[in-house]
Simulated scan of single mutants.
Amino acid sequence: MSEKDLGEHGNDDRKRYFVSVQAGQILEDQQAAAYELEVYLNEREHIRLRELFDELSSMDEAQTWHFVSHPYGTAGDGERNAGYDEIIQRIYKKMYEYGSEETKRHIESMQLF
């Protein structure tokens, strides 16, 4: 994304971040860890994306605890999976909205929405 592209979002205070959805990481340093997508976020958007990753992490922990305590599942498994999928959708929508052109093409190829 060029400086011109940054202006299209209406905020010049955006910074480039490298995101791994799988790891739930938002990194400033491209070399710090493996990442999947590149986005440009202002502070408020960064916080919101971090909150979505925290929600996803909490959902993962709840699912792990539930599996250990109820290894044969319950009627609520589908509801939990739907909640997990909904958070993933929200994360990818934010990443698409603020992503580089390459990020947008990648998300489009995933056919999530």
Rank of each mutant, 00 (worst) to 15 (best):
Q30C: 04
L56A: 06
G99Q: 03
H106P: 01
M95H: 05
S57G: 14
F113M: 02
F113W: 04
D5M: 09
N11V: 04
A34S: 07
R50P: 02
H46S: 00
A32D: 11
H70E: 14
S20A: 03
R90E: 07
H106E: 12
F67D: 12
D54L: 11
V39R: 08
R16Y: 05
T74Q: 07
E3M: 09
D60E: 14
E3I: 09
I91G: 08
L52N: 02
Y35F: 15
Q63W: 01
T103W: 14
R90N: 02
Q22Y: 12
T64K: 14
Q25S: 11
G73N: 06
Q22P: 00
E8D: 08
F67E: 12
R44F: 12
G10F: 07
D5V: 03
E102I: 01
V39D: 00
R105M: 07
N81L: 11
T74W: 01
R50G: 04
E102A: 09
Y96W: 13
A75W: 13
E51L: 07
E101Y: 10
A62S: 13
G10C: 00
D12C: 04
Q25R: 14
E51D: 13
G99R: 06
W65M: 06
I107Q: 03
F113Q: 03
G78N: 13
V39N: 02
R14Q: 12
G24P: 08
D60M: 10
S58D: 15
E36P: 05
Q89A: 01
A82Y: 03
K15F: 12
R44V: 09
R80G: 00
K94P: 03
Q22K: 14
E28K: 15
Q22T: 15
E61A: 10
Y40H: 14
E8G: 00
R90D: 03
K93A: 07
D85I: 00
K104P: 06
F113A: 06
T103V: 08
A82H: 06
R90M: 03
R48G: 01
V19I: 13
Q22I: 10
Y84G: 01
E102R: 00
M59A: 05
V68P: 01
H70W: 10
M110T: 00
N42A: 10
I47Y: 11
S58E: 13
S20D: 09
L37E: 05
G73H: 04
D5N: 14
E3V: 12
E108F: 03
G99F: 12
R90Y: 02
Y84V: 04
H46N: 10
